[in-house]
Simulated assay, not measured.
Amino acid sequence: MRHLRIPAALLPVALAACGAGADYTPIVDGTRGATFEHDLAACRALAREQDQLNQEAIAAAVLGAGVGAMVGGLDDSLTVEEAALGGLVIVGGSALADGTEKREEIVTECMRGRGHRVVG
Score class of each variant (00 low, 15 high):
Glu49Lys: 13
Val80Ala: 08
Val28Lys: 01
Thr31Arg: 09
Met70His: 03
Glu81Phe: 10
Leu53Val: 15
Ala42Ile: 07
Arg103Gly: 04
His38Ile: 13
Met70Val: 06
Asp76His: 14
Gly115Lys: 04
Leu15Val: 11
Gln55Ser: 15
Ala20Asn: 00
His116Cys: 05
His3Ser: 12
Leu96Trp: 03
Ala34Asn: 00
Arg5Ala: 11
Gly73Asn: 09
Glu104Asn: 07
Arg117Trp: 00
Ala17His: 05
Arg2Asp: 13
Val80Ser: 06
Val28Cys: 01
Leu78Met: 14
Glu82Cys: 11
Ser77His: 15
Asp76Ile: 13
Asn54His: 13
Ile6Ser: 00
Ile27Asn: 11
Ala14Asp: 04
Ser77Met: 13
Leu63His: 02
Arg44Thr: 04
His116Pro: 03
Arg114Thr: 01
Glu81Met: 12
Gly87His: 02
Pro7Asp: 05
Pro7Leu: 09
Ala97Val: 12
Glu81Trp: 10
Val62Arg: 01
Ala59Ile: 12
Arg2Tyr: 11
Ala57Tyr: 05
Gly93Val: 05
Glu37Trp: 07
Leu85Arg: 01
Ile58Trp: 14
Gln50Met: 15
Ala60Cys: 11
Thr25Ile: 10
Gly19Pro: 00
Arg5Val: 12
Ile6Thr: 09
Gly92Met: 04
Ile58Lys: 10
Asn54Cys: 14
Ala16Asn: 06
Met70Lys: 03
His3Asn: 09
Gly68Glu: 05
Gly30Asn: 00
Leu46Pro: 04
Ala20Pro: 03
Leu11His: 04
Ala95Ser: 08
Ala47Cys: 09
Glu56Tyr: 15
His3Gln: 09
Ala61Gln: 03
Gly33Lys: 07
Glu56Ala: 15
Ala42Asp: 06
Val71Ser: 08
Tyr24Ser: 01
Leu78Cys: 14
Ala9Lys: 00
Leu78Gly: 09
Gly113Asp: 04
Gly66Cys: 07
Ala65Lys: 00
Cys43Arg: 04
Ile58Ser: 08
Ala22Lys: 02
Val89Asn: 00
Glu81Arg: 07
Ala47Arg: 01
Asn54Glu: 12
His38Phe: 13
Cys18Gly: 03
Val13Gly: 00
Glu109Lys: 08
Arg114Ile: 00
Thr100Glu: 11
Arg5His: 07
Gly30Ala: 06
Gln50Asp: 14
Val91Phe: 06
Gln55Val: 15
Pro26Gly: 03
Glu81Val: 12
Gly30Cys: 05
Ala95Tyr: 05
Ala17Leu: 10
Gly93Ile: 03
Thr25Val: 14
Cys43Lys: 02
Leu40Ser: 04
His38Pro: 00
Glu37Ile: 08
Ala47Leu: 08
Arg112Tyr: 00
Gly86Asp: 10
Gln50Cys: 15
Lys102His: 14
Met1Ala: 12
Val107Asp: 02
Pro12Thr: 05
Glu109Ala: 08
Val119Asp: 06
Gly73Tyr: 08
Thr25Pro: 02
Asp98Gln: 12
Val107Leu: 01
Gly21Ala: 06
Val119Cys: 07
Glu37His: 09
Ser77Asp: 13
His3Gly: 12
Val67Arg: 01
Val80Glu: 06
Gly73Cys: 11
Leu4Asp: 08
Ala83Tyr: 03
Ala97Tyr: 10
Arg112Lys: 13
Ala69Gly: 06
Ala22Trp: 01
Leu15Trp: 07
Ala59Leu: 15
Asp76Phe: 13
Ala97Asp: 11
Ala57Asp: 05
Ala41Cys: 08
Ile6Tyr: 00
Ala57Ile: 06
Asp76Glu: 14
